[in-house]
Amino acid sequence: MALMSKMAPAAACACRSAFLKPSTSVIPAIRSSHAAVFRKRPGQLIVNRIKDVCHFYFIGIGFLPVLFCLAYNHIVYGTCELKDYPTEGPAPHHWQFERTPIRQWWAKWFGVSDVEHHERNLAYYEKQGILARWRQIEQRVKHLEGERWDYKGWSYQPVSSTWVDYGRWHALRMRDQYEQHGHYAQ
């Protein structure tokens, strides 16, 4: 390729068949030529970095782990089998009502038992019902107090059963678990 280089005037002279030319006029002609010596191009650093980032996040830790999980699931577990309701032993767990292994796994470790949710709601409504009945009885008591002019004494202070229970609990803790003396190293 040295023969074709534009920076070699002797080679250039030799290429121009038999006519000899002075080197002082050949080099300027080559340098003023239309042909490019170094061709300009846009930068590639940012574009390559974007490709690397997309390849890593979308494929490396996005698509490939999902593909691996699916392949592992299909090779090891396959599909779930619909069985009759078990007559012996404990009742089925809530995740065993899903019909694919992946959904069963997700429901087992990340899902919420719908039966537990239902029972919790029922317990909440039952408690609200109890409180409503208490409030009703309390209102009736107050109404009867007004009707019968049977008000409580002027020095009466209301007693809270919750605080009474808490005081008893605190007293028992003081009696049973309080350390009267410290254990000091002698």
Partner: peptide
């Protein structure tokens, strides 16, 4: 490979009653 593993590890699912 696949079918023996599937038959060994197959999980049951039930219809809710």
């Amino acid at each position: 490979i696949v079918q023996p593993l599937n038959n060994k590890n197959r999980l049951p699912y039930y219809h809710r009653q």
